[in-house]
């Protein structure tokens, strides 16, 4: 890098000074690259904010966020059903995907025969590269009927006393959306978790084994506590994908802007309603309300990301105190 810059006419002839000029150029470039990210993020917020302003102005921020009515005809817009749907489906996705992903990663990194690793790793990568519209179609034609005829009756029979698993069983709804999101974020969480597990110093594990721990005890006392912060980070990546997923969710969530306690009920999510209604929205207030939803989605992502970061920080600090 420095050598090539030295040949530039602007660079000074002395090799020492040229290196300094090169360094300076290099650091300017890096600052520009870093600044570009902030600039883009800032511009996104600025443009969305300007587009959303009429809706916030006309409806009031509080009423928009807490409103449960979404009626483009009469101009009543409330974001709560969409915020609720986004959070519930993402929570279901994390609850289902996280244990499976950690188990899968432990199997591949610690327990499973090494020969099995490449094909399983390949399968995970394939899952990660399937376009979301394919997931949506698969969800609509395979997952939803299965959820309606098998999963929901089973959950209703076993856990029907919980309000979470009551109501008519239509297949479409929070549960199906959460399950399809779980499949979609599984590869992300599993891939990062595996890397985290591989980076654990062997001395820790050998120490545990030397103290007479079984393999399971070794994982419990040496592997999982060390990897906790990393696994949280992996979950965060998965959560990011779950919050923003549009196509697959809209095809299986039922698209009803309502709030229900039951996971069997049909709901709606923030990205889904934006994608559904933006193209044909004609009234300025409707368009502005959709932009406001985009801003809300950005806000939800930001809040959850920050919360998760704090959690990672706390976890790693506690780990530092323990060792």
């Amino acid at each position: 890098m420095a050598a090539s810059l030295a040949r530039l006419p602007t660079a000074a002839p002395s090799p020492r000074r040229s290196r300094r000029a090169g360094d300076r150029l290099w650091s300017v470039g890096l600052v520009a690259a870093g600044g570009a990210i902030l600039l883009v993020a800032g511009l996104v917020i600025l443009v969305l904010g300007r587009a959303a302003a009429p809706a916030f102005h006309a409806l009031g921020v509080g009423r928009f966020l807490a409103g449960q009515d979404w009626d483009p005809v009469s101009g009543a817009f409330g974001a709560l059903p969409f915020i609720y749907g986004t959070l519930v489906t993402s929570a279901v996705a994390i609850l289902v995907a996280l244990p499976v992903a950690v188990g899968l990663s432990l199997f591949l990194a610690e327990m499973g025969p090494p020969r099995l690793r490449p094909p399983v790793a390949f399968a995970i990568e394939t899952l990660a590269s399937i376009p979301s519209v394919i997931y949506g179609l698969w969800g609509l034609f395979v997952l939803v009927p299965w959820v309606r005829t098998t999963v929901e009756p089973l959950l209703g029979r076993l856990l029907g006393w919980l309000p979470l698993f009551t109501g008519p069983r239509i297949g479409l709804g929070y549960l199906s959306a959460g399950l399809i999101l779980a499949v979609m974020i599984l590869p992300t969480i599993a891939a990062v978790t595996q890397e985290v597990l591989r980076s654990i110093p062997p001395a820790l594990k050998e120490g545990a084994l030397a103290l007479g721990a079984t393999r399971w005890e070794m994982i419990r006392i040496a592997v999982l506590p060390t990897a906790r912060a990393g696994i949280l980070g992996a979950t965060l990546l998965g959560l990011g994908r779950a919050l923003g997923e549009t196509m697959a969710v809209t095809m299986v969530i039922g698209n009803a802007p309502e709030i229900h306690a039951s996971l069997f009920a049909a709901g709606y999510s923030l990205p889904a309603v934006i994608a559904n209604e933006f193209a044909e929205a004609t009234s300025p207030l409707h368009l502005s309300a959709l932009a406001a939803l985009a801003l809300v989605l950005l806000g939800v992502t930001l809040v959850l990301n920050s919360a998760a970061r704090v959690l990672v920080l706390l976890t790693s600090r506690r780990l530092g105190e323990a060792s």
């Binding site: 483009p72 698209n255 049909a266 209604e277």
Partner: peptide, 21 residues
Amino acid sequence: KVGFATSVRWPTGLGGKGNEG
């Protein structure tokens, strides 16, 4: 109760995306 528009507040039912949905 509902009126007409490209998107309305449906009193009942499920939403599918597009004719194919």
